[in-house]
Amino acid sequence: MTDPSFSLWVYLSQSPLLWLTVTLAAYVIADRISMTFRRHPLCNPVLMSVVTVALVLWATGTSYPVYFEGAKFVHFLLGPATVALAIPLYENRRVVLRAILPMMVALVFGSVTAIVSAVWVAELFGMPETILISLAPKSVTAPVGMGITETLGGDPALTAILIMLTGVIGSIMVTPLMNALRMKDWRARGFAVGLASHGIGTARAFQVNSLAGTFAGIAMGLNALVTALLLPFVLRLLTAD
């Protein structure tokens, strides 16, 4: 005596089809809105799609593991996309090689600033040390950042949230901020957002300018490396007193 619409729901909610489609549909709609508003920073496609999907999950009482069964196909493509960063990098190799020096100096300054500024502000609010550790790698791409936190005794789940928020904040902030500073160099703009806001910032950069996207991808990779190496020492200095 089961209601046919109920058995359809039971089927759909258990198969990857539904949640894969919901993920793509939420993105297509968000991307269209973003394009309609000519990539206005506040119409961030990641933020809009994530909120949409989260609301659908909440409204249907769907758990995250069930959702991820469908969404994992999209999630998987993060690896191939990282590999594909080689394509614009190779295309722009001459521009990139000529910018080695500014990249290296900006990398060190930016990386240290990202850690120190976050920890200082959180210390002003009297946050405990485990929170400071979890906050410190917030500008690094999620898998590396969570790894760093885990080694240093922080909470990787909290780090994942802070990393995601940093990505969205940077993507929204970068265009108006760079325009206000009258920065016209796409290499520098891209490098800054890739360093401060990792992959989500890189996604934003690719939407605006391909050269900016290339430099954002480089900054994301280099900052992951430098933060992993520097963070233990910087944290020790910061929390010593």
């Binding site: 993920t23 793509l24 939420a26 993105y27 991307d31 496609p45 990641v46 799609s49 994530v50 909120v51 999907v53 989260a54 999950l57 995250y64 959702y67 991820f68 969404a71 994992k72 999209v74 999630h75 493509l77 993060l78 191939p80 996309a81 594909a84 960063l85 394509i87 614009p88 999620a142 994942a160 949230i161 995601m164 990505g167 992959g199 989500i200 890189t202 996604a203 934003r204 690719f206 939407q207 996207g213």
Partner: peptide
Amino acid sequence: LLAHLSLLFIPASVGVV
């Protein structure tokens, strides 16, 4: 693939939200 990099962050970000 890179033009739709934003899409690829949705599944993980939903978990985080």
